[in-house]
Computed example of a mutant assay.
Amino acid sequence: MADDKEELVVAELHKKIKEAFEVFDHELNNTVDVREIGTIVRSLGCCPSEGELHDLLAEVEEEEPTGYIRYEKFLPVMTKVLMEKRYRPIPEDVLLRAFEVLDQAKHGFLTKEELIRYMTEEGEPFSQEEMEEMLSAAIDPETNAINYKEYITTMVIDDS
């Protein structure tokens, strides 16, 4: 009986992976640009670091990198990632504590300038593209700040 249940889970994952992949398969030839893989992986509820994403790409890329990833190489690797629940999002309370540490004045928000400084000077720096993507999603244009309590709720994926 357990095998039937697992087969169902795998079939459901395959469907999700195929749908996510097809969004970026512009030529409809079962390949996507290697630069889209991060977006596809994240759209499936995974949050790998840049290093983890790099390792994942190494698994799915051809021996001779072409700049494209083939669906049949991506599917088994991504299925395994999802089955093992790898690259899970960080829980909401942990994210909140992290923002609170950065918000030393305890305002409940960070200014755009503070956020940029933390994103470029601390830990694993964000690329320009990642930074712009986050700022466009996180910064309130009226206050030019991030109300992180509200932002965190958009970052957390509901598993149910």
Rank of each mutant, 00 (worst) to 15 (best):
S43W: 02
H54A: 08
F74G: 07
V101L: 15
A98I: 13
E62Y: 01
E72L: 12
M83E: 13
L96A: 06
E61K: 14
L75S: 04
C47P: 00
T79Q: 12
L102A: 15
V41R: 05
A58F: 05
E61G: 09
K85F: 05
L53W: 00
E100C: 11
V60Q: 01
G67A: 05
Y68V: 09
E84M: 14
M83N: 11
E59Q: 14
I40T: 05
L96H: 12
E72F: 07
V77M: 10
L96V: 08
A98N: 10
P76T: 07
E52P: 02
M78A: 03
C46F: 02
K85L: 11
V60K: 05
R70H: 14
H54N: 12
P48Q: 01
L95P: 03
K85G: 05
M78K: 07
E62I: 03
L57S: 02
T79W: 08
L96P: 00
L57H: 02
Y71D: 07
L44K: 10
M78D: 06
I90G: 02
S49M: 04
D55T: 07
G45A: 03
E62F: 06
Y87E: 06
D55P: 00
L96S: 06
D103A: 11
E62R: 10
D103F: 10
H54M: 12
E59K: 15
E63T: 11
E52L: 01
M83S: 12
M83Y: 05
L102D: 10
D93V: 12
K73A: 04
V94G: 04
R88S: 14
G51P: 00
Y71N: 10
S49E: 00
V81A: 01
L96W: 00
E52A: 02
S49Y: 03
S49G: 02
P91E: 08
K106S: 14
R42S: 05
E61M: 15
Q104L: 14
F74H: 04
L102M: 14
G45H: 08
R42K: 09
V94H: 13
V94I: 15
E63C: 07
V81F: 02
P76R: 07
V94N: 02
A105S: 15
C47D: 08
C47G: 06
C47T: 07
E92G: 04
E84A: 15
G51S: 14
G45K: 04
L102C: 15
L57I: 13
Q104K: 15
L53G: 03
F99N: 09
E92T: 06
L53Y: 01
E59W: 04
G51L: 12
T79G: 06
P65K: 03
C46E: 01
L75Q: 04
V94Q: 14
D93M: 10
E50M: 09
P65N: 01
L75D: 00
